[in-house]
Design a protein around this nucleic acid. Sequence first.
DNA 1: CACCACCGTTCCGTTTACGGAACGAGCCGA
DNA 2: TCGGCTCGTTCCGTAAACGGAACGGTGGTG
Lengths: 160, 160
Amino acid sequence: MSLSTLARLAGVGKATLSGLENGTRNPTLETLYAITAQLGVPLTAVLSGPAETPTVRGAAVGATLLEVFSDTDATYELYRMRVSPGPAQLSPAHQAGVTEHVTVFSGVLRAGPVTAPLTAGPGEYLRWISDVPHSYAAVGDEEVRASLLLRYPRSTTVES
Amino acid sequence: MSLSTLARLAGVGKATLSGLENGTRNPTLETLYAITAQLGVPLTAVLSGPAETPTVRGAAVGATLLEVFSDTDATYELYRMRVSPGPAQLSPAHQAGVTEHVTVFSGVLRAGPVTAPLTAGPGEYLRWISDVPHSYAAVGDEEVRASLLLRYPRSTTVES
DNA sequence: CACCACCGTTCCGTTTACGGAACGAGCCGA
DNA sequence: TCGGCTCGTTCCGTAAACGGAACGGTGGTG
């Protein structure tokens, strides 16, 4: 799925999607709904994602995570992740049995359990059990682009 | 908690809150975050609330539910509900053990399990176990204003 | 190597969500 | 009954999110 096609399918502008992925936009609820509806995921999947970014501006919430996929049984979710240079982003523990798989495309990422973070460069891969608090941080000045796969032990309801 | 004080505490305009409750605004993610952060509830509480409104415009999602409270253990959540005249709004089953308590302020509400809905007028009170699909509908032409209390059997994690 | 299709970004005019102020209504207390 | 307080709504100028078009970069193809 490319930015262009997603924009066309969801009926939103390419500029909107582009700015949204880069965190330079503060999306409208209607915009978010159009995108997530097209992707077939609930709104909550984008908002309360695994890498909660406790930023001052609410705009940054969920901004680093977009373009979400999930299978019909909701046993995994694939996020596209961007981590900007700066302090590490923290994420609380998820439910028991959840595993995170991260593949780095560009930049150097230091992530994993806060007690024992791991480091990965372009093309490299990380994995950890995410039932403990964990963090994400970019090493150096370069922004990190990576994919993040969450695997749930069993089909978990994404209901309210 | 009044609209005026909530606006002051959350740092948003009264016009914004007013229009948001009436569904005439399409809020920004930043606005929603400011409000929910002040109320101490996660963003998802407003978006995937119990009375999911499957409206065409994404703006209406969660618009009928606002002004949320919850205690520190997250064992209950209090919503302020407005139901407009028209077809009934449906809500899927919640997790086992959840109870819904509704107090009607104005208008006549017909709500409860889809198999056996109940009716209540101003000052009256409804209650049902919400582990089955249930619905909300306004009786007559008047908009219904009510409060909705969800009680969880045990402190449930509101995590992602 | 030229061409083309598509990618994601940037520019720009329009639309609209934003906060502040003004307003009428309702509710006490003097 | 009057004045003051707070309620929620409405008006309005500003700031910004929106979609469309134009742009440079990249990979595949004849």
